[in-house]
Design a protein around this nucleic acid. Structure first.
Lengths: 105, 105
DNA sequence: TTGACATATAAGCGATGCCTTATCTAAAGT
DNA sequence: ACTTTAGATAAGGCATCGCTTATATGTCAA
């Protein structure tokens, strides 16, 4: 699985905020437009990036498109970041320091 | 904690690869230059982005700078993504489908 | 102290990103 | 049929990105 489009999509704070809103519930584009200080096309473009990254999917409902989160690509992101857990866990940081110390002996 | 610089830094695949190398062990810039098909300044610039995001720190060693991972900002990233776990977990996806079904009844 | 080495910074360039306004398509309401 | 509504796409502007080559800074070695 290629996580690059997902990582790139998450690089923009507006897109993360969109995901946060869609995580609460499925929403039409208009509901998102109401929440951001930018034009409707700008939102549609962000949604396209998210769609292309597989992070959201639209569902037709009359003339509206209801977007929902499609989380699968986030698992790869989560896993990648998770491999760094020892770099922020205090206990394992201590272990890291110990190993560094050992190595320099 | 502001996770935006970290998310943005991780958006580039070269920088993720740099982190992967530094996660194995502390390395000088030259060791990274050897691993990528790009110039030394390009690497130094990627390292600057990672440094500014708090993801790596250099340590002086003679005329070299040894870079190491500084994982703290990744915890915020991991937490943010972790909130989406239900969107990729099969069991909870089934629950989600069930709830959607209930709602539309 | 002179020269080689390791890295950072500067300047510039083409590609990409994020926004805008204008327009197109499709579905509803009248 | 015409108009309105919801959304996507097109085109263009300006900033930022990711690279390059050239140069500056600091350290080691002869």
């Amino acid at each position: 699985m290629n996580t690059t489009p997902a990582f790139r999509a998450l690089g923009d704070p507006t897109r993360r905020a969109i995901l946060d809103l869609l995580a609460e519930e499925e929403r039409p584009v208009g509901a998102l437009v109401d929440r951001f200080a930018m034009s409707q096309p700008a939102l549609s473009q962000h949604l396209r990036v998210l769609r292309d990254a597989g992070l959201v999917t639209p569902r037709k409902d009359g003339r509206r498109r209801l977007y929902r989160v499609q989380g699968a690509p986030l698992e790869g992101v989560h896993d990648w970041v998770g491999r760094y857990e020892r770099f922020w866990s205090a206990r394992l940081d201590a272990l890291g320091a110990y190993l560094d110390d050992e190595r320099s002996r």
